[in-house]
């Protein structure tokens, strides 16, 4: 059984997480960073969930110290504040996952994330859908020309089925464009294909799409077999756009916009092997508005 430590100065959050997580894991809770470090000296631990704003050591600093001392421990931040304000901090402290404290709290989402991080099973849209889900379609993109047809086919499916697609047309377009033009690299790491040109992909450059839904959300996974996207790149791109530094150029705009437009954007990376971007929208506005940061690396 995995062992999890919860660090939060708000008692109701500690007990809430304890009650939920102890059904599946060994769980301990502490109220600040000092006590957390102390506890970790004496107890084995696989994963730490820490609040950001606490008296004493702040969450990011705490997680940084933990990673220095115990590199095997997985770390996750949790906050009631606007996560966009913390992207720069995430860049500085090497944080990949920030969970929003929504009301009502999204236990399902937390469980999915923790399970993925602990088991290293992160790839695949179905992992992010509830147990009872439906895969609507899968498609393989072999050329830039055909990517438009696939995008239309998927958005049409959503529209017909749910009467809504949100901004999926735009976000799929942005992410697929990245997968076609930015993922394939030459030996010297230069981009292989020029954007806005018609491209025929080689079999190992094909982009795989999966669309599906469960009773609360629908979404699409866009997977490339290159694995050239890096966590630092993602954070850098999101950060500069949040700080309006990227207005004059297009670099990273796709990732930033997709995160803004989709209710959820999850980025799974297995370096030099594959990259998956999952975009999901909720049917109801309950969990909308709080944008988590999810970058999973194995």
């Amino acid at each position: 059984m995995h062992s999890i430590l919860v660090v939060d100065d708000e008692k109701s959050i500690r007990t809430m997480l304890l009650d939920f997580l102890e059904e599946r894991y060994r769980v301990a809770t502490v109220e600040n960073g000092e006590v957390a470090l102390d506890w970790l000296e004496k107890n084995p631990c696989d994963l730490v969930i820490s609040d950001i704003n606490m008296p004493g050591i702040k969450g990011p600093e705490l997680l940084y110290r933990i990673k220095q001392r115990w590199p095997h421990i997985i770390t996750v931040l949790i906050t009631a504040y606007n996560i966009n304000d913390y992207i720069r901090m995430a860049k500085t402290y090497d944080i990949c996952n920030i969970i929003p404290k929504t009301s009502p709290f999204n236990f399902d989402e937390l469980q999915t994330l923790l399970h993925g991080l602990l088991t290293k099973e992160i790839f695949g849209l179905e992992r992010y859908l509830r147990a009872r889900h439906t895969i609507l379609t899968t498609a393989v993109i072999t050329s830039s020309q055909q990517s438009r047809e696939v995008r239309e086919e998927i958005t049409d499916l959503f529209q017909k089925r749910f009467g809504m697609v949100g901004e999926m047309r735009l976000t799929i377009d942005e992410i697929v464009t990245n997968a076609i033009y930015h993922a394939p690299r030459l030996a010297d790491n230069r981009q292989k294909y020029q954007e806005f040109t018609e491209v025929e992909l080689l079999p190992d450059e094909y982009v795989h799409l999966t669309a599906g839904f469960d009773d609360e959300k629908y979404g699409v996974s866009i997977l490339d077999g290159q694995g050239s996207l890096r966590r630092e790149t993602v954070l850098y791109k999101i950060d500069r756009h949040i700080h309006e530094e990227g207005i004059m150029d297009d670099s990273g705009r796709g990732i930033h916009m997709s995160r803004l437009f989709a209710d959820r954007m999850i980025i799974n990376i297995q370096a030099n092997f594959k990259t998956e971007v999952i975009l999901m929208n909720y049917f109801s506005p309950t969990y909308r508005g709080f944008k988590p940061l999810y970058i999973n690396e194995i």
Binding site: E10, K11, S12, I13, M16, A80, Y81, K101, S103, F105
Partner: peptide
């Protein structure tokens, strides 16, 4: 609002836990 969000998340989350696992 953000300060409110913290306890509210705890209150609603705890209540949801209790409704989900009443025997616990």
């Amino acid at each position: 609002a953000h300060e409110m969000n913290n306890p509210l998340s705890g209150i609603s989350g705890t209540a949801a836990n209790m409704l989900g696992m009443p025997q616990k």
